[in-house]
Every structure is written in C-alpha cells, then in structure tokens.
C-alpha cells in the first residue's frame, strides 16, 4: 500500500492559544474596571524603579497593584512592595517573556474589582514579549538614556506593538552625552506619532505627567467610574 502525500490547507495563527486567553483576560479586566499596563524593557532600563515610583505616585488617588515576571535569579517583587502596593510575583524560570496563561494563574483568587490599576512588569527583554498579548489595555516600552539614542531602531517589532514610549533616567542624560533629538527621531522613524514621556525616578521629573496620562487613559476606558 502506497500512501499518497496530501496537503491540508489551513490558516491558523500559531499564537492562537495565547490570543484566546488574552482576550478572556481583557474581558475580565474590562468587567472589573481595572486599567492594565504591560511594561517592557531591556534589563537595566530602570523598569522596576520606574514602576515603584509610578505605583507610589498613583496610590495617592487610586488603588494600584502589580504583577512582576522575575527570572529565577531576581527579586523585583520585593523592591516593588516598597511602594506599599499589592505585588504578586511570577517566577518565569528561564522563560524570556510572560504569556497570558502565566498572568491568569497569577491572578488566581484576586478580586480585581478592588483595583483601579494593575501593572504587569514583563521579563527584561525587548524581543520576545512583543508577540504575547497579556490582555493589557496599554503596552509601555521603556528605554533608558544610558542605552543610547539608536536603540529604538533595533526593536521595531516591540515598538510597533506598544502604545507608549518612556525615556528613563533622564537625570543621567548629560553624563552619558545623550542626544534627545536623535532618540526622538529614531522613535519617530520606527513608529510615527507614538507618545513619548521622559522621566527620572531620581529627581521625580516627568512622573506626574506620566501618572496623569495614565489616569486620563483609564478615565477614557472607564468613563462611568471616574474618580
């Protein structure tokens, strides 16, 4: 008996499973009235520090919490708790990104309607997190001035899946001879029109503006439950 080769034509997204889970998460976030932000950056861009400060800033007027994806060797959750916010940790082992399923597991037993904002700190990586929708409302990519002006052009996929760019550690700009215009031009070449905010956790510069922009975005999504 000879077997005839056959071609089965389909069209199926390889990440369908993640996308379906992410959609379910998004519906849940929506129903609970919690605005969810996914933070992505390379390691050392100051993501944890920026998040600690924005949690502190927002907690004066809103109920905030965070989920953090930590490699086995890190403990960012501990640092984030200094903000006073409720923080849950996902230990990713060697996995280089968070997936919707990990977020779903981390949410277990948490009543989301007690929250206004939930931040998800992704694993420090500018490549892999781009492909995985976590059901977030907004994806934020952070670059520190110490990473140089051209970095955005090396990660077009991530920036094109993001809604906001945050430039961090601007207090160090002069010391590292950072050319702000050149950075902004690079961002504009990769994703024209994306919003860019500039912050310094050290001096506090820009944190208020970023917080206000998050509150505005949240009020826009949940107009009925404005504070």
């Amino acid at each position: 008996m000879t077997l005839t080769p056959r071609i089965v034509e389909v069209r199926q997204n390889v990440l369908k499973k993640n996308d379906i889970l992410a959609r379910a998460l998004r519906e849940r976030f929506q129903a609970s009235g919690v605005y969810v932000v996914n933070l992505v950056s390379s390691p050392g861009a100051g993501k944890t520090t920026a998040l600690t400060h924005i949690l502190t800033e927002l907690s004066t007027s809103h109920r905030v919490a965070a989920i953090v994806g930590d490699l086995a060797t890190e403990n960012d959750a501990e640092r984030l708790r200094e903000s006073g916010a409720d923080v849950r940790q996902i230990t990713t082992g060697t996995v280089c990104h968070l997936e919707a399923q990990m977020v779903e597991e981390a949410l277990h037993g948490w009543s989301l309607d007690t929250l206004d904002f939930l931040f998800i700190e992704n694993v420090g990586n500018l490549v892999c997190p781009a492909s995985y929708d976590l059901g977030e409302h907004e994806r934020v990519v952070l670059f520190s001035v110490t990473e140089g002006e051209d970095k955005p052009e090396k990660y077009p996929t991530l920036i094109n899946s993001s809604d906001t760019v945050i430039m961090t550690k601007i207090d160090l700009a002069e010391a590292v001879d950072f050319n702000r215009e050149r950075f902004l031009r690079a961002v504009e070449r990769v994703r024209p029109g994306i919003a860019v905010y500039e912050i310094s956790a050290k001096t506090g510069a820009g944190l208020k503006e970023w917080a206000n922009r998050l509150i505005e975005a949240r009020n826009h999504i949940f107009p009925m439950v404005q504070n």
Binding site: I7, R11, Q12, N13, N160, R189, P192, G193
Partner: peptide, 26 residues
C-alpha cells in the same frame, strides 16, 4: 520596517495592515 513611511510619497504612517503574522497555512 524602518522608516515607517510611504515609499512613494514619503508620508509617515503607523497604520499597519499586515506583517505581524505567524500563521500556519498548510
């Protein structure tokens, strides 16, 4: 994907219609 502008008239745009797919087709 860089720069994100029309190759004909050079107008900038962030309106991406495709190019993100990871699809099994057969």
């Amino acid at each position: 994907p860089i720069p994100m502008r029309c190759p004909v008239c050079q107008t900038k745009t962030a309106d991406i219609r495709s190019g993100r797919e990871i699809d099994i087709i057969a």
